[in-house]
Structure formats: structure tokens, C-alpha cells
Simulated scan of single mutants.
Amino acid sequence: MKPTYLPLLLAAILAACADSGANYRPILDGTPTPAYEADLAACQQLARDQRAFDQETAAAAVLGAGAGALLGAADDDADAAGGAIVGALAGGTAGAVNANDRRQEIVIECLRGRGHLVVG
């Protein structure tokens, strides 16, 4: 894989995960109240407003690139650049997954704060 594909591939991975946490529809204990759908939409928008590629995601990509470069340089059949690319993709993807988990938690906690009986 050429290094020029790294930004495109990372952008594609992040775009695929972009709203998955924010679009979460939680499980309720009981019947939804009349205000539930409006509250859900507001909480999902709040979660959607959180950036997917935040500082934590960037740090994970940088750490992954560093670790991958070291492992690639240590392997006789690989190179440091290839290891850095794979490490950056792995770290960036892990950071994006964590960001989506945080978005899902935002939806859950927001609905709980509005009085809805969310179980998960």
C-alpha cells in the first residue's frame, strides 16, 4: 500500500463510523412518553455535534504509527513506513470507535437526564 492512500483510507474509515454512535436508539424500560421522540432527536443531535476525529483519536493514530514503524523496522521483511501506515490506521480506527462509544453514552445519559427510563 502506498503512503498516499493513507489519508483517503483513514477518511473512509472515519466516515463509515461518523454517526453510528449518535444514531443509537436505546432500549427503554416501559412505554415511551409522548416527548420521547423529540428528546431522542435532541440527544442524538447533541451527540452528533461531538467531533469524530478528536485529540484522543489523533493521539491514538500517532502512537499506532510510532509503534508500527518500530515493529516494521525490526522485521527483516517489512519496512518502517509500511509499519507506520498500518499502525496509524489501527490507532485511528480504535480512536474513532472510542469516539462512537462516547456518542452512544451521550445519547443514553441525555435521555436519562430528561427522565426517560433507559436500560441500554
Rank of each mutant, 00 (worst) to 15 (best):
D101H: 07
T4Q: 13
L71N: 08
R103W: 11
R114M: 04
D75Q: 11
P34Q: 04
A22L: 03
L6M: 04
P34R: 12
A96F: 05
T31V: 15
Y5Q: 13
T33L: 11
A90W: 00
P7C: 12
L46T: 14
E109D: 14
N100R: 07
A78M: 02
G120M: 02
A81N: 14
L9T: 11
L14Q: 15
V119D: 02
C110G: 02
A67T: 15
K2T: 15
G92Q: 00
A73E: 10
S20C: 01
A35E: 04
T4H: 09
A38T: 11
A73H: 09
L111M: 03
G115I: 01
L71H: 06
L89M: 09
P7G: 12
P34W: 04
P26H: 00
A81C: 07
R103C: 07
A67W: 14
A69H: 09
R114T: 09
D79C: 03
A78D: 15
N100D: 10
V86L: 06
P34H: 08
Q45A: 05
L14M: 08
E56S: 13
A11M: 04
V62K: 14
D75Y: 00
V62P: 05
L70S: 03
G120A: 09
G120W: 00
A35M: 04
A88D: 01
G66R: 11
V107I: 05
A60I: 07
D79G: 15
A65V: 05
R102H: 14
D101S: 08
N100Y: 02
G66N: 06
L6S: 01
A69C: 08
G113F: 02
L70Y: 06
D77H: 11
L71M: 12
Y5W: 10
H116W: 07
E56V: 14
I85T: 11
G64A: 00
A84F: 12
A52M: 09
G72H: 01
D39K: 07
A15E: 15
L10A: 10
L89A: 04
G113D: 06
G21T: 06
Q104V: 02
C110H: 05
H116N: 07
L111F: 08
V62W: 15
L89F: 08
L70K: 08
V86I: 12
Q104D: 03
A47D: 06
C110M: 06
G72N: 03
G82C: 00
R103I: 02
T33K: 09
M1E: 01
